[in-house]
């Protein structure tokens, strides 16, 4: 343990390869073209009240939302407006007080009990990487496959591929604590992608990262989304990040959390960082920010 086997000093400088147009037209093996009516995720009348010692907290009120298959939806809103609560309901970690969640027409909550087979198809990324310190990066990434009973050899191959996808090649045998924050978050994303999720739910995954790393991660995420064609719900409190990534931006208002507006983002894809300098982008961001300010 005295010598570092891995070149920790050099963070991998992986830049996403340019996305080719045709990758958008054929996202993975799903036949649905983008923007079709196929539903990835449907939320209807979701209500959530937390019972606390100091009384009830009405966190979500009557949330209706439909996310198309392969669509990228960003969820923004100020702190405490219920973004995390909504995402936890979507990801099956929290039972809604009322309402339904459906994934590809299948109900995810039946009478307050979660249907594990539905949620098993979801990939979750939290604000913290939540990697297991007792596993190497490779074992962390392979965890979902291990739980599904994939053979050791197969899951190692697949996990190594995923590490390459997120630019962690060469770090497979490192322990999480030997990685930087951004690398850990990438490992967490790779883990979420391990079982080819039909839906990817991300709660401020880049919240703890510096602006530069964040920009890079956004590009990587855009690329991953384009190639895999998964449905993504992405929580952030950065409006520009939301606009940059999303097909639609959903704005939540607090107390109780409800959907205030849904803004379609028609900026052409793939988007590069330069898009943030365009007038169109600026208008979208200013418009959303104004809506947020109006709340006061």
């Amino acid at each position: 343990m005295t010598t570092q086997q891995t070149p920790t000093a050099t963070t991998p400088t992986w830049t996403p390869p340019p996305v080719r147009r045709d990758e958008f037209d054929a996202p993975g093996d799903t036949a649905e073209p983008m923007g079709s009516r196929a539903v990835g995720l449907r939320v209807a009348g979701v209500d959530k009240t937390y019972a606390t010692r100091r009384g009830d907290v009405h966190a979500l009120s009557n949330i209706d939302l439909e996310v198309g298959r392969g669509e990228f939806v960003s969820l923004v809103g100020r702190s405490g407006c219920g973004k995390t609560t909504l995402l936890r309901v979507l990801s099956g970690l929290l039972a809604p007080t009322a309402g339904t969640v459906e994934a590809g027409e299948r109900p995810a909550w039946v009478a307050g009990r979660r249907d594990d087979t539905v949620f098993a198809e979801f990939g979750l990324v939290f604000q913290e990487a939540n990697l297991f310190p007792w596993f190497t990066v490779l074992d962390n990434v392979a965890l979902p496959l291990k739980l599904r009973g994939v053979s050791k050899a197969q899951r190692r191959t697949r996990a190594a591929e995923l590490c390459a996808t997120v630019g962690l090649s060469g770090f497979e045998d490192s322990y999480p604590r030997e990685l930087s924050g951004g690398m850990r978050q990438r490992a967490a994303i790779a883990r979420a992608l391990a079982c080819d999720p039909s839906v990817l739910l991300m709660d401020e995954p880049f919240g703890a990262l510096d602006a530069m790393t964040r920009d890079r991660m956004n590009l990587e995420l855009q690329h991953i989304h384009a190639v895999s064609g998964t449905t993504v719900v992405f929580v952030t409190h950065s409006i520009s990040e939301a606009v940059f990534l999303a097909d639609r931006v959903v704005l939540l208002t607090p107390r109780p959390g409800r959907i205030r507006s849904v803004t379609p983002i028609d900026l052409p894809r793939p988007r590069s960082v330069e898009v943030e300098a365009t007038a169109e982008f600026g208008e979208l961001v200013v418009g959303l920010r104004r809506q947020l300010d109006e709340e006061d």
């Binding site: 990801s91 970690l93 594990d116 087979t117 949620f119 939290f126 913290e128 297991f132 979902p144 739980l147």
Partner: peptide
């Protein structure tokens, strides 16, 4: 957070 991961994976 670890517990969330395992629950999310339906372990």
């Amino acid at each position: 957070g670890h517990r969330d991961v395992m629950r999310g994976l339906g372990a």
